[in-house]
């Protein structure tokens, strides 16, 4: 039984790590600001859920489980809000989600 729990928790941890990694690559490589925010929010939501679920399985029935649950609830509330606030601030300061900036420039570099 404990073997099963270990395997499941490691699968969750590794897939969470994969999401964070993909999000990191996206934040660096995506062509414009809004797509980058989108990629970064991937680490916030999916990555943290999976990693925290993995740690919860490792923690078992203890006080740590309750604390991790509380952290998860707060992260689920705050992370999308932070992404929203970031994108909204960019929109208000005049950065248009323009189709032109969606494509890379001539040299193949992403436009800022």
């Amino acid at each position: 039984m404990s073997m099963m729990i270990d395997i499941v928790s490691w699968i969750l941890l590794l897939s969470g790590g994969a999401f964070v990694f993909i999000g990191g690559i996206g934040a660096l490589r995506m062509p414009n600001f809004y797509t980058r925010v989108h990629a970064a929010s991937l680490t916030d939501s999916m990555g943290t859920i999976l990693i925290l679920a993995g740690i919860m399985l490792q923690a078992g029935w203890s006080l740590a489980l309750i604390k991790l649950l509380a952290i998860l609830v707060f992260l689920l509330l705050t992370c999308p809000t932070a992404s929203y606030a970031l994108a909204n601030a960019a929109l208000l300061s005049g950065l248009k989600p323009d189709a032109k900036t969606l494509s890379p420039d001539d040299k193949g570099r992403p436009t800022p």
Binding site: F74, L77, T78, T81, Y84, A85, N88
Partner: peptide, 15 residues
């Protein structure tokens, strides 16, 4: 004018 951060933030302050 930022409804979502305001609502979530208000929820968080007491915690």
């Amino acid at each position: 004018h930022h409804l979502i951060p305001k609502v979530v933030g208000r929820l968080l302050v007491p915690f």
